[in-house]
Design a binder for these strands. Structure first.
Length: 467
RNA sequence: GGUCCUAUCGUCUAGAGGCCUAGGACGUGGCCCUCUCAAGGCUAAAACCCGGGUUCGAAUCCCGGUAGGACCGCCA
């Protein structure tokens, strides 16, 4: 069997977290089974679809590494095909012309809701057999009976057809509607597995009926549980960023998001960390859970930190550089960047964090935190600082090792603990009391900057002594 | 209102009738390590929605309640 899955977003906004997971699961399933993953843009709503949205969705998938094998196909380019199929249904008597206007339908719907009746189309045009000289839409004639959806994730779900209304398949402006296009496309594109959010479950019986009317074999359905926000309602902007690209901007690594999304709804024993290949190898629809899950930013952060730590220094340097730049710091071409990133990686949850907490490396002047300087850059530390400078200046090699040796020598001579000297040095170099370890940091800084900052600090100590 | 889905620590989840004294992970507390902050190690608290069945035995199967959620367009 040739497995074929598809991701079919509508271009009315950016790539959403939920959409990204749907795309991911489709891709993983296809790859796991040596099948094809197809991208289709559902832009039948001409009024709401935009070029920017299409680009945003493609960019999002690109960034996440979700590469498709065929497409993108655009429904807007296939209108003739849908019309052809719709009229075939009309000829076969499986569809009929409906002359009700949208305004009339809307009024009836409102009235029905008011009276507590189901707002279902009453089928009044079903029996008009002659063609009237009025604009019309084409409606599908839902047959009586029961329709069973066999879903890999949810099991068998049965629907009484009497609860399904005669849906419009072709609007009065001759454009086709969603449920119809989906079926025509999935059928003609030989999609074997329809994997999508479970908000589509109620559409599925309609689609099954359409497949039958069109004389096509059914695909396998798999409805993924929803992703919810912290208040257990459908994830939306209220819960924070929902755009995939917003996570890029916040300094997340694409694979951290992929790993997180994969584990939201799917699991493989006790494993938490998966490479992309590992996901492909281990992913099955059978191990997708059936209940919805709450999006947990904390866990995403943990994964992001994990992958930051696992990224090689030179690669990390390239990734974090734009975040330094957006802070107004010029880091392009600075060959210290890999070493600097190395000192920061264990204490950064995002690339943005990393740039912010490492900004001191690139500032022309240290920005002293008043409380920190008051506590550590004190006159009585001046003598010690002078000694440190004297010992560091002659160092031919300026490495973690030689620096630690130099400091240990001073500590032994003066009978001091490292803590006594590390904090003042830290403040001298960074302006604050929180930073990477001083030896790795000094090595990353380079000798010139270290000596300069130490001397600045010494001057600061002496000036406060005068006052 | 109708249709449908779902139900294990706060959160993501393991669990396929006995391996469950319910496991892992995030987060949270404590301890250790330590030049600060992290990272790391150890450790603690923390859950089978309720009620009936079925069975020698049920977190697991069935039914009913309850609670959440999704969908009900000439949107997708």
């Amino acid at each position: 069997m040739n497995f074929r899955t598809r991701f079919a977003p509508s271009p009315t906004g950016y790539l959403h977290i939920g959409g990204a997971r749907t795309a991911l699961f489709n891709l993983l399933f296809a790859r796991h089974n040596q099948g094809k993953f197809i991208l289709r843009i559902e832009d039948t709503d001409v009024a709401r679809s935009t070029e920017e949205s299409i680009k945003a969705i493609l960019d999002g998938m690109e960034w996440l590494g979700l590469h498709w094998d065929e497409g993108p196909f655009f429904q807007s380019k296939r209108f003739d095909l849908y019309r052809e199929h719709a009229y075939k249904l009309l000829e076969k008597g499986e569809a009929y012309r409906c002359y009700c206007t949208p305004e009339e339908l809307e009024a009836r719907r409102e009235a029905a809701m008011k009276e507590g009746r189901p707002p279902k189309y009453d089928g009044r045009c079903r029996n008009i057999h002659e063609k009237l000289d009025k604009p019309f839409a084409l409606r599908f004639k839902v047959p009586p009976g029961t329709t069973v959806v066999r879903d890999i994730i949810k099991g068998a779900i049965s629907f009484d057809n009497s609860t399904i209304e005669d849906l419009v398949i072709l609007r009065s402006d001759t454009t086709p509607t969603y449920n119809f296009c989906v079926v025509v496309d999935d059928a003609t594109m030989d999609i074997t597995h329809v994997i999508r959010g479970d908000d589509h479950i109620n559409n599925t019986p309609k689609q099954i009926l359409l497949y039958r009317a069109l004389g096509h074999e059914l695909p396998v359905f798999a409805h993924l549980p929803m992703i919810l926000g912290s208040d257990k309602t459908r994830l939306s902007k209220r819960h924070g960023a929902t755009s995939v690209m917003a996570y890029k901007e916040m300094g997340f690594l694409p694979h951290a998001l992929v790993n997180y999304l994969a584990r939201l709804g799917w699991s493989h024993g006790d494993e938490e960390i998966f490479s992309f290949d590992g996901l492909i190898e281990k992913f099955t629809l059978e191990s997708v859970g059936s209940s919805s899950g709450v999006f947990n930013p904390e866990k995403l952060l943990w994964l992001n930190q994990h992958y930051i730590k696992a990224t090689p220094d030179d690669e990390l340097a390239g990734l974090v550089a734009p975040f330094f730049e957006s802070l107004g710091l010029k880091v392009a071409g600075d060959e210290r960047l890999p070493k600097i990133a190395a000192t920061l990686k264990e204490r950064s949850k995002t690339l943005k964090d990393m740039a912010e907490s490492g900004a001191f490396y690139f500032k022309d002047k240290v920005e002293y935190d008043p409380k920190a300087t008051e506590k550590f850059l004190t006159p009585d530390n001046a003598e010690l600082f002078a000694l440190v400078i004297a010992r560091l200046e002659p160092l031919a090699e300026f490495t973690h090792k030689t620096l630690e040796e130099a400091f240990n020598a001073i500590l032994a001579e003066k009978d001091l603990k490292l803590g006594k000297i590390a904090q003042p040095v830290r403040v001298a170099l960074t302006g604050g009391t929180v930073s990477p370890g001083i030896f790795e940091m000094m090595e990353a800084f380079g000798k010139g900057m270290v000596i300069a900052r130490l001397k600045d600090a010494l001057a600061h100590m002496r000036s406060t002594a005068v006052k």
